[in-house]
Design a binder for these strands. Structure first.
Lengths: 122, 122
DNA sequence: CGGGATCCGAAACGATACTG
DNA sequence: CAGTATCGTTTCGGATCCCG
């Protein structure tokens, strides 16, 4: 496995790719996506699940994800109003690769924390 | 695939996981990791490959990756000095999941860009 | 060549208050 | 219930200068 196939992160395509990666890179998108993985959620429900996210950041994150076609936003005209969020097919495919990241992080978190402490003890 | 297994991003483990994810989420780590995927690189070599990264950010990014045990830093006591960077086994395993992300971004970048334009046209 | 130190503007984020 | 608006703080990142 010495030779890896590296995507076109080198040329002009990199800008686009980085652009997309920055959404996943922000503070809350991955958490929100994971919480939408197994079910449709309402706003405040999502908020509890993603604690301690602020109302402002959840709103902003969802807005960005909707803009990217990763989640859908459905408004029910009841009173009080009700809004459902769910992953689109694109969001579902994103979830899969994001879960790869999350699992890696989970598997390695403890050892990385240890290495960090060792590294900082200097 | 309606039922997804979601990792423990909910409990106390989430802090650790998010902590780890934030490294991948910063502006340059993914690019640097990908460029280290197929070979050991020297500092300025890496700098050219990651253009337009600044010296400061490349230095900071590598420092963080070294701290997390993702890259090794090897100093050769020649003149002028020479420093090699390479992925550790942990870094190699991270590369694999990161490539998953990069490929997804590459595959979806064009359509996402289109959706963004549509969304913004309101 | 491979950095570190400093400064500064921009962007992200949190807290709080208010609204349909 | 599901947001928006405003504000202040913190963090990030680029530019520049310096050094072994």
């Amino acid at each position: 496995m010495g030779q890896q196939e590296v995507p076109e992160l080198c040329g002009r395509g990199r800008e686009l790719v980085r652009d997309v990666l920055e959404r996943v890179g922000d503070k809350w998108s991955v958490v929100v996506i994971c919480q939408l993985g197994d079910a449709t959620r309402r706003f405040n429900e999502l908020r509890r699940l993603c604690e301690p996210i602020t109302q402002r950041m959840l709103s902003a994150t969802l807005h960005g994800l909707e803009r990217d076609g990763v989640v859908t936003r459905t408004v029910f005209d009841t009173k009080p109003v009700r809004v459902d969020y769910a992953l689109t097919p694109r969001g579902l495919s994103l979830l899969e690769v994001v879960l790869g990241l999350a699992w890696w992080a989970e598997r390695n978190a403890a050892e990385i924390q240890r290495d960090r402490d060792l590294f900082d003890a200097r």
